[in-house]
Nucleic acid binder design. Sequence first.
DNA 1: ATTTTCACTGGACAGCCTGTCTTTCATCGG
DNA 2: CCGATGAAAGACAGGCTGTCCAGTGAAAAT
Lengths: 204, 204
Amino acid sequence: MATRKYDQRLRAEASEETRRRILDAVYTCLREAPAEPVALDKVARLARVSRSTVYLVFGSRGGLFAAFAEDLLERGGFSRMLEATAHPNAREGLRGGIHGVMTMYAAHRDVLRALYSMAMLSADAVGGAVQRIEQGRAAGAYYRAMRLADQGQLRPDVTTEEAADLLWMLTGFDSFDLLYTGRSLPVDRVAERIATTAERTLCR
Amino acid sequence: MATRKYDQRLRAEASEETRRRILDAVYTCLREAPAEPVALDKVARLARVSRSTVYLVFGSRGGLFAAFAEDLLERGGFSRMLEATAHPNAREGLRGGIHGVMTMYAAHRDVLRALYSMAMLSADAVGGAVQRIEQGRAAGAYYRAMRLADQGQLRPDVTTEEAADLLWMLTGFDSFDLLYTGRSLPVDRVAERIATTAERTLCR
DNA sequence: ATTTTCACTGGACAGCCTGTCTTTCATCGG
DNA sequence: CCGATGAAAGACAGGCTGTCCAGTGAAAAT
């Protein structure tokens, strides 16, 4: 039973295409009805794919949402957030970083709301993708705090850890959403308020 | 068809007892497995009651959770929060209020986490109970802001509305939880940090 | 041209959960 | 004791998940 070699070109592309269609369908589902549970049946129909194909490609419901979250990160450019706002002045960089994150939050608000809530509600619903995001955010907060400390911008009674904790809190999706959705403030306003809060609390 | 009168004594008590048992069962369910969806089946079994009784008493799943949230509020004393911390000094009152709220959040953390996430995910999952809580919190935030303004404690570049918005954000469950669970800080620490943030951002 | 490989289908199935409906049971007034 | 009343139990239909598998059609190899 000598297995002959088998290079895929067209078929691999088609496969990638269906994967994309499914992920896009999830996005559409969440965006159009963020307040309703996402049925895989609907996702499959939207992607013009059999329901079993979803399981075939992503393994499970959790796997699908994990992939979806990962994809959203990638496309939203969350990962490049840090480098993109590397300003020589730590304080300016902080403001820029906050503004950038808030803008992304706003762009995908409904979808992120659903994703975060799902992650909170059942641990494996999104397969740890949200946890990974949050870990990255924690690292980012610590990096920002470090830079402020290095440049002597922190108040004397504020340690780097404390600064990192506060930035972690203020740059979270929930902080954004409480002002953006809860108080109907425009994105720029939200970013401004949060940046100001961070500065007044942490900087000398 | 003259309906004769019908005084309930034993039965009414028993009924009230059943209601309590069911609500307590919900609490137990949420506390023991906050990261898993609550099945009414399990609630009923825990309350030593038929599942249909749950529907009979509370109407629907949403109704049950609405009643549960209401009950939690009542027992947790959320409603009395405002009066309890009416300090002559607005700034002291603010600190006290924040500490009080955070302590309550901590006491019921797991349950509240589930409740809030459910409310976010599907609007009628908790039958608007969370919305009512949040409305009360918004009023509280505005009250605190007003008091600060009246006593001339606000920075000149901060309006009462802005102060209310920030207090609204900082006193939310999510802000608490990001520090308490996300950063593993003890309650007192969390309250301290949030109160300090509020003061430094808002007060002169 | 023929064979092999593989993504995808389509349907069947058990399992869990919800919500409703009907039936049974315990308590109350007379 | 009896009939009335409301609480509780059980049966039922419907929806969604996750698994399984025989089958199909098109790309790739020979």
